[in-house]
Design a protein around this nucleic acid. Sequence first.
DNA 1: GCTTTCAGGGCAACTAATCGACCGCCCGGG
DNA 2: CCCGGGCGGTCGATTAGTTGCCCTGAAAGC
Lengths: 261, 261
Amino acid sequence: MQSYAGGKAASGQHLTTRHLPTPSATQSLLLTESARSIGGPPSLFDALTPHDREVVLRHGRRKVLYRGKTLFNQGAKHDGIYLIETGRIRVFYTAPSGREITLAYWHPGNFVGGPEVFGCGVHQWSGVATSNSNVLQLPGKDLRALVVEVPNLAIGLIEGLTFKGKCYSALAQMLGTRSITERLAHLLLHLAQLYGVEDPEGVLIGSAFTHADLAHMVGATRQWVTISLKRMQEKGIVTTRRSQIVVIRADLLQEMKGLGD
Amino acid sequence: MQSYAGGKAASGQHLTTRHLPTPSATQSLLLTESARSIGGPPSLFDALTPHDREVVLRHGRRKVLYRGKTLFNQGAKHDGIYLIETGRIRVFYTAPSGREITLAYWHPGNFVGGPEVFGCGVHQWSGVATSNSNVLQLPGKDLRALVVEVPNLAIGLIEGLTFKGKCYSALAQMLGTRSITERLAHLLLHLAQLYGVEDPEGVLIGSAFTHADLAHMVGATRQWVTISLKRMQEKGIVTTRRSQIVVIRADLLQEMKGLGD
DNA sequence: GCTTTCAGGGCAACTAATCGACCGCCCGGG
DNA sequence: CCCGGGCGGTCGATTAGTTGCCCTGAAAGC
C-alpha cells in the first residue's frame, strides 16, 4: 500500500488502456535470491493469437476496482481467476493472530485469485487493489473447457503457475533461511532498483511505503523495521526523511543481505 | 530423512510396482493452516486415459535412485521434470549461509524438478531420495509438444502446479506469520496424523525424524528443536525416547499452534 | 485558530532464538 | 574388541525480535 503518499504518482497510469503492457522483469517478486535466474513474470496473453484472445475474453467479466478496494477475501469461496488488465493487486495472508504476510504485488498480464484455477475452492489469501485497477474474471468451468479448445491458453496458464511457484518458493526460501535483517536489506535493494530515483545523496525509493508495509513484506513487526532502519541510518547505509528512504550505500546493503546473487 | 532409523521399515515397499498408487491426502504438505481446505496432492496420471499414459510414458527415461542419492542439485541446469513412480523425494533449498529449508517431501504420482516445466532453467532447489525411488524423466521440449497433443496432460500439469503453489504459499504463510515454536507444534500434530501409531501413552510418530530433520522443516536450528521438545516434555505434552516422539496431549499442541483450523 | 483524531514512528523491558562448543551415547564396521 | 561417526543433549554468551505503551505531527472538524 504505497498509496498513502504515492497516490498522486499512480493516478496517471490507470484506466488508460485495455492492452496489456509487458511488465518489466521481477516486478512481482519481493524477495528472491537470484532474480536473474528466475526471469520475469509471463503475461498470460503473450502465448495467444489475437483470435484466441477474442475467444477467451468472451468468457470473462470485467470488474473495476478503486484503490484500497478488496478483490477477494481469504476464506471466501472462489471461482476461477482474475486476469489483471491495469493496476496493481496486493495479495496477502492473514494469520489467526492477526499477523500478515504479503505474498506478492501482481501487475497487468498476471492472473490472481484463490489457489485453484479450475475448481471452486476457498481463497487462501486476500487480494486488494493498491492502485485503481481493471480485472477480468474467468470462471473455473469455462477455463477448463477453454484449455482443451485453446492449447496455447494451457501453456500460458502453466507458465503463469510455474512463475507463481517460483515466486512463493523464493519467498519461503528467504523466510526460512534468512534473518529479518537480511530480508530487509534484500527488500530495500530490490525496491531501490524497482522504484529508485536519483537523489543527491543516493537512490531515493520513489513509492512511499510505511514501516508497516515493509514489515508485511519481510514478515516482521513494524517496530523491528523501525529499529533496523534506525541502525542502518546510524551506520550511514540509508537516510530516512519522513516516510521516504534514501539508500546511500547499496554496497553495504548487498553485504548485509549475505553472499550469493 | 527418516531413513536412519526407519530404513528397515521402508525396505519392503520400494521397487515393487510400476503402478502409481494414489497417495493419501496432504502427505506432502509440511505446514499448512487448514489441510482440509487444500485437498490432497493430485496424481499427474489420474486425469489420463490408459492410452494417453502410453503416449506420455514413451517420452520418459527411467531412473533408479537409492536412498540418500541426489536426484538434482540446486544451481544446476535442468530439463523438464521427474515423475515419481515409487519412493520419496525430499526437496530443499540451501542458503549461501549453509542454512537449509525443506520445501516438501514428494510422493508417487507427483512430479518434481527445477521450477520450469517446459523450459531449461536452473534448479532453484535440490532433490534427494529419502527412500529407494523410481522416477521417470520427461524432457521439457517433449512435454510442450505433448501438451498440445494430449489436453488431459495439460490439465494434470496445471493441477499439479496449482497444488505446488498452494504448498509453497502455505509454507511461506507459516514461516511469515508463526513463531518457530508454533510451527513446531504444527508440524508435530501433522506428523502424528500422518505417521502416527497407537501407543499406550498416546500417539507415537512412526517415521523417525532426527532433530535436524525437524529443524529443516520448520526453518530453525537443531538446538532450538531440542530445547523446545524438552520444554514440551516438561509440560507433559510429548515424551521422547531416543529419536522417537510420542504425542500425549494433542489438545495442548493444538492450543500452542494458535487458533484457526 | 483551537481541538481532536489517528496513522506513523520511537522507546524500554522482555523473551525467543542463535551460535559455537563440548560431551556422552549408541551403533556399525573393521 | 575397539574405534569412529552421527545423533542427542547441554551450556553460556550474545543477538534478534516482540510486546506494549507513548509521542508526534499533519489533517480534519468545529
